[in-house]
Amino acid sequence: MGKWLVLAVGIALLGLINYTIHSRETLRQEGRIVLLELAPVDPRSLMQGDYVALRFQVAEALRREAGEMEQPDGLLVLQLDEQQQGRFLRLDDGRPLARDEVRLRYRIRAGQVKLATNAFFFQEGQGRHYEQARYGEFRVAGDGDALLTGLRGADFSPLGVPSQ
Results as ranks from 00 to 15, higher is better:
residue 1 M to F: 15
residue 2 G to I: 09
residue 2 G to T: 07
residue 4 W to Q: 14
residue 5 L to N: 03
residue 5 L to M: 07
residue 6 V to M: 09
residue 7 L to C: 11
residue 7 L to G: 11
residue 9 V to T: 11
residue 12 A to N: 08
residue 14 L to T: 15
residue 14 L to Y: 12
residue 16 L to G: 12
residue 18 N to C: 15
residue 19 Y to I: 11
residue 21 I to H: 12
residue 21 I to A: 13
residue 21 I to E: 12
residue 22 H to D: 09
residue 22 H to P: 00
residue 22 H to F: 11
residue 23 S to P: 10
residue 23 S to N: 11
residue 24 R to V: 06
residue 27 L to R: 02
residue 29 Q to V: 08
residue 31 G to V: 02
residue 32 R to S: 07
residue 33 I to W: 02
residue 33 I to Y: 02
residue 35 L to E: 01
residue 35 L to S: 02
residue 36 L to E: 00
residue 37 E to A: 08
residue 37 E to M: 04
residue 38 L to Y: 02
residue 38 L to H: 03
residue 41 V to W: 07
residue 41 V to N: 06
residue 44 R to G: 10
residue 45 S to F: 06
residue 46 L to M: 13
residue 46 L to D: 15
residue 49 G to K: 02
residue 49 G to A: 04
residue 51 Y to P: 01
residue 52 V to N: 00
residue 52 V to Q: 00
residue 53 A to V: 13
residue 54 L to Y: 03
residue 54 L to F: 09
residue 54 L to W: 01
residue 55 R to Y: 10
residue 57 Q to C: 14
residue 58 V to S: 00
residue 58 V to H: 00
residue 61 A to M: 09
residue 62 L to N: 01
residue 64 R to Q: 14
residue 65 E to L: 11
residue 65 E to D: 15
residue 66 A to T: 04
residue 67 G to C: 04
residue 67 G to V: 04
residue 67 G to Q: 05
residue 67 G to E: 06
residue 68 E to I: 01
residue 69 M to N: 01
residue 69 M to C: 04
residue 70 E to M: 14
residue 72 P to R: 07
residue 73 D to A: 11
residue 75 L to C: 12
residue 75 L to I: 13
residue 76 L to C: 09
residue 78 L to G: 05
residue 78 L to N: 03
residue 81 D to L: 02
residue 81 D to H: 06
residue 83 Q to S: 13
residue 83 Q to L: 14
residue 83 Q to G: 09
residue 84 Q to M: 08
residue 84 Q to S: 11
residue 85 Q to K: 12
residue 85 Q to T: 15
residue 86 G to P: 03
residue 89 L to K: 10
residue 90 R to H: 09
residue 92 D to R: 06
residue 92 D to H: 11
residue 92 D to G: 06
residue 93 D to G: 15
residue 95 R to Q: 15
residue 97 L to C: 07
residue 97 L to P: 00
residue 98 A to D: 05
residue 100 D to Y: 08
residue 102 V to D: 00
residue 102 V to A: 08
residue 103 R to F: 12
residue 103 R to C: 11
residue 106 Y to W: 08
residue 107 R to P: 09
residue 108 I to K: 01
residue 109 R to S: 12
residue 109 R to M: 10
residue 112 Q to A: 10
residue 113 V to D: 00
residue 114 K to V: 14
residue 114 K to S: 13
residue 116 A to F: 01
residue 117 T to V: 08
residue 117 T to E: 05
residue 118 N to G: 13
residue 120 F to R: 00
residue 121 F to M: 14
residue 122 F to Y: 06
residue 123 Q to M: 12
residue 123 Q to P: 02
residue 125 G to F: 03
residue 126 Q to R: 11
residue 127 G to A: 12
residue 128 R to S: 11
residue 128 R to H: 15
residue 131 E to P: 00
residue 132 Q to H: 14
residue 133 A to P: 00
residue 133 A to T: 00
residue 133 A to G: 01
residue 134 R to P: 10
residue 134 R to V: 07
residue 136 G to W: 00
residue 136 G to S: 13
residue 138 F to E: 00
residue 139 R to Y: 08
residue 139 R to V: 06
residue 141 A to I: 14
residue 142 G to R: 08
residue 142 G to P: 02
residue 142 G to S: 10
residue 143 D to C: 03
residue 143 D to A: 03
residue 147 L to I: 04
residue 148 L to H: 06
residue 149 T to G: 04
residue 152 R to W: 01
residue 153 G to K: 02
residue 155 D to Y: 07
residue 156 F to R: 09
residue 156 F to G: 07
residue 157 S to Y: 10
residue 158 P to F: 02
residue 160 G to H: 01
residue 161 V to H: 04
residue 164 Q to V: 14
